[in-house]
Design a protein around this nucleic acid. Structure first.
Length: 172
DNA sequence: CCCTGATTCGC
DNA sequence: GCGAATCAGG
């Protein structure tokens, strides 16, 4: 299976649509996710979402090409001197991924009881509203299920799979 | 343990 | 150019 123009187009379309490499590979068929990723790279589409590009990890050199025994692979502190680590901002409260991804579910919060941090109980929705450092910061305050941290509304949007869609297993 | 993308090298 | 192997983070 070679990369025809149509294939590439579809690849770009799917990839641009936010599908994962595996998904795109499944859609195209006959290719593995590695192939897709490789192609995507060559096309220059790799810069879609910054994921595991936190730090410039040591690039493999030719010496390692000969089947590294993966004994201490990655343990080489070649870039350790570069001190590229950034300061972790102390997040006062967990900010659920509600926004940022309007394509999933633009759940709108109907009402807010403006529960203060002191009025939270085990049945109080602890969904943070507003910026933790802001004076207007408060919690949802809705009645949560049993011991759920969030109310019905927020429980749904709070739980988001790491990947958007799980590929459906094909029967047969 | 499963997933994800990123990178590199041999063909 | 292509794709497996591999790595690394979640």
């Amino acid at each position: 299976m070679s990369w025809t123009d149509e294939r590439v187009e579809l690849l770009k379309k799917l990839w641009g649509d936010g599908l994962s490499a595996s998904q795109v590979a499944a859609e195209l068929g006959g290719v593995t996710r590695n192939a897709v990723i490789g192609k995507v790279h060559r096309l220059g589409l790799s810069g879609r979402a910054k994921t595991t590009t936190t730090a410039p990890r040591a690039r493999r050199t030719r010496a390692q090409t000969t089947r590294p025994p993966r004994t201490n692979a990655g343990a080489a502190p070649t870039v350790g001197a570069n001190a590229l680590k950034v300061d972790s901002k102390p997040q006062a409260a967990p900010q659920p991924r509600a926004e940022k991804k309007p394509e999933t579910d633009p759940v709108v919060i109907p009402i807010s009881k403006r529960a203060s941090i002191l009025t939270l109980t085990e049945t109080t929705c602890k969904w943070p509203i507003g910026d933790p450092g802001d004076g207007d910061f408060h919690f949802c305050g809705h009645k949560s299920e049993a011991s759920a941290p969030y109310c019905k509304y927020h429980s749904e949007i709070a739980y988001q799979p790491s990947s958007d869609r799980r590929r459906a297993k094909k029967a047969g």
